[in-house]
Every structure is written in structure tokens, then in C-alpha cells.
């Protein structure tokens, strides 16, 4: 038999997720960004751009922008809140469960890519050394 979980997708659309979708945190352009990356979800065509100011190996400021679904926008909001002041090393060590912990909702397997686009894009931005790198 199929292993597809029987959790309803509706469980993902909690108030706190939809609030972030409608009013995302850290959304927009970041002036003086030292690091930047544009990430795509080839499955749906969504794209987000993450911009950072990194000084002495620590995140001073971060913003993201783009078009995406509620899961993508909410996870990017929570993630950008979470990493302020963190070291680049700590960011590079973040993994899937860290994102899921932040979101506090059950993510169905088909939506994992939506939930993780923010982290993937953030890590690529951090890796890019030059300003506007990989943008």
C-alpha cells in the first residue's frame, strides 16, 4: 500500500502561517547587501531572492523578496527572523528539521520543496563570497 501520509493538507494552514503569508517578515530589498542569491523551485516556478549583510562572519541584516506560496513565504519569514545575529557557520549547519521546527506545522512530503526553498537560497547566498554573488 501507499506510504502517502493521511494528514490533511489543511493542517498546514494555521493562523500563524497565514498571518506570515499575508504580512511577511523581513520582506523587501536590503540596501548595502554583501550577499545575495535568487532561488527557484522548478516544480512550480516560484522564486525568492535572499539578501544579507554579513560582517565578521555574522548576519547583521537580512531580507527576502519574491513570489511564492504560503508555505514558502511563511518559512522564509521565520527563517530570516531566526538567523539574525547568527554566524555563517551556524546557518550552513541548518537542516530540514530546523525549518520544520520553526514552522510548527506538519508539512506534507509534496510541499517539502516549498518549505525548504528559503533555507536553500539562504545557504547559497551565504556561500557566495562577492556582493551580488550568484544573483
Amino acid at each position: 500500500m501507499s506510504n502517502i501520509e493521511e494528514t490533511l493538507s489543511e493542517e498546514m494552514y494555521r493562523e500563524h502561517i497565514l498571518d506570515l503569508y499575508k504580512s511577511p517578515h523581513n520582506f523587501g530589498d536590503l540596501e548595502g547587501a554583501t550577499h545575495k542569491h535568487k532561488g527557484f523551485n522548478p516544480l512550480c516556478g516560484d522564486e525568492i531572492t535572499v539578501q544579507l549583510i554579513i560582517k565578521d562572519g555574522k548576519v547583521q541584516a537580512v531580507k527576502f523578496k519574491g513570489q511564492g506560496c504560503a508555505i514558502n513565504i511563511a518559512s522564509s519569514s521565520l527563517l530570516t527572523d531566526e538567523i539574525k545575529g547568527k554566524t555563517t557557520q551556524a546557518i550552513m549547519e541548518m537542516k530540514t528539521p530546523d525549518v520544520l521546527d520553526l514552522m510548527k506545522i506538519p508539512i506534507s512530503s509534496v510541499r517539502f520543496k516549498c518549505a525548504l526553498l528559503g533555507l536553500e537560497t539562504l545557504q547559497k547566498a551565504v556561500q557566495g563570497s562577492e556582493p551580488d554573488g550568484n544573483a
Binding site: 489543511e10 494552514y13 512550480c44 516560484d46 506560496c69 508555505i71 510541499r111 516549498c114
Partner: peptide, 21 residues
Amino acid sequence: IHSHDLASLLDDDNICIRAGH
């Protein structure tokens, strides 16, 4: 409402549509 979110919620009732590009 993003089309992916609609498709996920419709899937709760086994309504299969396509969403994306």
C-alpha cells in the same frame, strides 16, 4: 491564494488539479 496552496487543499478531498507553470 497561490495555486500550490489551492492544489494542496483540494487534494484533501482527492480533487486532482495541476498548479504551477
